[in-house]
């Protein structure tokens, strides 16, 4: 069982975001971290390979400036190797371009049974990459999984829905997107962190993957501050604040 996990390395979400002068997300400030949403995919992949008894977990990440901090985190969790696509020509890539890069990297990895991704990234949250990668590979996509099982060359998931969940299945190879909380990501051990430093990292450019023309098909025309909402009345509770709420509810006629 060979599993590719798409891992995005993102600016730390705890640090307020910024746009560059050409309206792209600023990515060259603090060091990048592994998108927490992808730590679930990494954990899921490790468990599935472990259960299968053979195979490896391969990371695929597209990131600027040869960024490896987030990849090291995932390697320390136990992934075997990584493919990093880093290329100035990919700056400002849209989700479809990113998906083309990932699909080519999956082919480069070779002999892949399953691709795991998060349902959306924490910084861009386009939320379409898993379906796009699947279409480019010509594979089934099982999206929004909150439970994943593999048996007899078939993957079965519980797919989150508005009303509850659906059980969806397809044969391998396939793409699965996992929701947060699908498994409990492990903390890298000290041994894992040390081992990560010497794990194979295959760094390539878009051209190495046979991708030349990159067009975004979209252009930002304006960025403006959202209208702020005014703060209203603030009451310190002295045991009677509930009465103020009751009056407010009456004024609104909800009681």
């Amino acid at each position: 069982m060979n599993i590719v996990v798409c891992v995005k390395q993102i600016p730390d979400p705890a640090v307020p975001g910024e746009l560059t002068s050409d309206n792209r997300l600023k990515r060259d400030g603090a060091k990048a971290i592994l998108d927490e949403s992808d730590s679930y995919g990494v954990e899921m992949a490790l468990q599935l390979v472990d259960k299968a008894g053979s195979g490896e977990v391969i990371l695929v990440s597209m990131a600027p400036n040869g960024e490896v901090s987030g990849l090291r985190q995932a390697l320390a969790m136990g992934a075997a190797r990584a493919i990093l696509i880093s290329d100035d020509a990919l700056a400002g890539a849209d989700a479809l371009t990113t998906s083309k890069v990932i699909a080519k990297a999956v082919e480069r990895a070779g002999g892949v049974d399953l691709v795991l991704a998060a349902t959306e990234s924490s910084d861009g949250y386009t939320g379409t990459v898993p379906a796009q990668v699947a279409e480019l590979l010509g594979w089934p996509s099982l999206t929004f999984a909150k439970h994943v099982e593999i048996a007899d060359g078939k993957v079965t998931i519980q797919r989150q829905t508005e009303a509850g969940y659906d059980v969806v299945a397809a044969s391998l190879p396939a793409v699965v997107s996992v929701t947060a909380g699908v498994v409990e990501p492990r903390y890298p051990s000290f041994k894992g962190i040390m081992a990560a430093k010497s794990k194979p990292l295959d760094q390539v450019t878009a051209a190495d993957l046979g991708l030349d023309s990159i067009s975004a098909g979209q252009r930002i025309t304006s960025v403006a501050a959202a209208p702020a909402r005014q703060a209203g009345e603030k009451v310190e509770d002295d045991g009677t604040a509930f009465e103020r709420i009751v009056t407010y509810l009456e004024e609104l006629k909800v009681i």
């Binding site: 849209d94 939320g127 379906a131 796009q132 975004a216």
Partner: peptide, 24 residues
């Protein structure tokens, strides 16, 4: 719509037609 099925549909169609997507 930015829903489960809507996102599957726009993602797959984007790759099929080779068109960018704007979401959210």
């Amino acid at each position: 719509a930015q829903t489960y099925d809507g996102r599957d549909a726009i993602g797959r169609l984007s790759a099929r037609l080779d068109r960018t997507v704007l979401t959210n």
